[in-house]
Computed example of a mutant assay.
Amino acid sequence: MKPLIYHNPACGTSRNTLAMIEASGETPDVIEYLISPPTRERLVELLTLMELPPRELLRRKGTPYEELNLDDPALTDDQLLDAMIAHPILINRPIVVTDKGARLCRPSERVLDLLDNPVATFTKEDGEIIHHSGEAK
């Protein structure tokens, strides 16, 4: 299976993750999730693959998170999913899926453990140099 990335080109973390995948010799399927958001069913599947509850996938910065009062602990997982489907910007990114699993890649170097032949060294957009030992984190 080709790597799949739910990507936002306006996000530096997402750009770095995509660049690490490509530097590792992979040509991923790229889904710009703000243009083509996942269905509710697919979002539930991704959360299951990542072993995350919906609250852990919520993005706060630059979203209607506060306006929608999503910090209310009484909100159910279904209500949080409804909010993410109605406002895809609330879905944190990037999400990468490979044969090795699925992961929210924040920080971006978390993608390296999902790749068959990860690049050993990578320089992020901000100049930070990442060294990958090949050991799972």
Rank of each mutant, 00 (worst) to 15 (best):
Met1Tyr: 07
Lys2Thr: 09
Lys2Trp: 11
Leu4Ile: 14
Leu4Val: 13
Leu4Lys: 04
Ile5Thr: 02
His7Gly: 06
Asn8Arg: 08
Asn8Met: 04
Pro9Asn: 08
Ala10Asp: 14
Cys11Lys: 02
Cys11Arg: 09
Thr13Lys: 04
Thr13Leu: 02
Thr17Arg: 01
Thr17Asn: 07
Leu18Met: 00
Leu18Pro: 04
Leu18Lys: 10
Met20Ile: 03
Ile21Ala: 02
Ala23Arg: 08
Gly25Asn: 02
Gly25Met: 07
Gly25Gln: 06
Thr27Ser: 11
Thr27Arg: 12
Pro28Gln: 00
Asp29Thr: 14
Val30Pro: 04
Ile31Leu: 08
Ile31Cys: 00
Ile31Asp: 01
Leu34Ala: 00
Ile35Leu: 15
Ile35Tyr: 11
Ile35Glu: 15
Ser36Ala: 15
Pro38Asp: 04
Thr39Cys: 10
Thr39Ser: 15
Arg40Trp: 09
Arg40Lys: 08
Arg42Glu: 15
Leu43Arg: 00
Leu46Ile: 10
Leu47Arg: 03
Leu49Arg: 15
Met50Ile: 01
Glu51Val: 08
Leu52Glu: 04
Pro53Cys: 14
Arg55His: 13
Arg55Ser: 02
Arg55Val: 04
Glu56Ser: 08
Glu56Arg: 15
Glu56Lys: 15
Leu57Cys: 02
Leu58Ile: 00
Arg59Trp: 10
Lys61Gln: 14
Gly62Pro: 03
Thr63Ser: 06
Pro64Ala: 01
Glu66Asn: 14
Leu68Trp: 07
Leu68Lys: 00
Asn69Pro: 06
Asn69Val: 06
Asn69His: 12
Asp72Trp: 14
Pro73Ser: 13
Ala74Lys: 15
Ala74Met: 11
Ala74Cys: 14
Leu75Thr: 05
Leu75Phe: 06
Asp77Met: 12
Asp77Glu: 15
Asp77Pro: 11
Asp78Gly: 14
Leu81Phe: 05
Met84Ser: 06
Met84Asp: 10
Ile85Cys: 02
Ile85Ser: 05
Ala86Glu: 12
Ala86Lys: 13
His87Asn: 14
Pro88Glu: 09
Pro88Gln: 09
Ile91Thr: 05
Ile91Glu: 00
Arg93Cys: 06
Pro94Ser: 06
Pro94Cys: 09
Val96Asp: 02
Val97Ala: 10
Val97Cys: 07
Thr98Gln: 01
Asp99Ser: 14
Asp99Leu: 02
Asp99Trp: 07
Gly101Phe: 01
Gly101Gln: 08
Ala102Glu: 07
Ala102Trp: 03
Arg103Asp: 04
Cys105Glu: 12
Cys105Trp: 04
Pro107Met: 07
Pro107Ile: 07
Ser108Gly: 08
Glu109Ser: 13
Arg110Ala: 13
Val111Ala: 00
Leu112Gly: 05
Asp113Ile: 12
Leu114Arg: 03
Leu114Asp: 01
Leu114Cys: 05
Leu115Gln: 00
Thr121Val: 14
Phe122Met: 09
Phe122His: 08
Thr123Ala: 05
Thr123His: 04
Gly127Trp: 10
Glu128Asn: 13
Ile129His: 10
Ile129Val: 15
Ile130Lys: 09
His131Val: 12
His132Thr: 06
Ser133Arg: 10
Ser133Tyr: 08
Gly134Leu: 01
Gly134Asn: 13
Glu135Cys: 02
Ala136Pro: 01
Ala136Ile: 06
Lys137Asn: 15
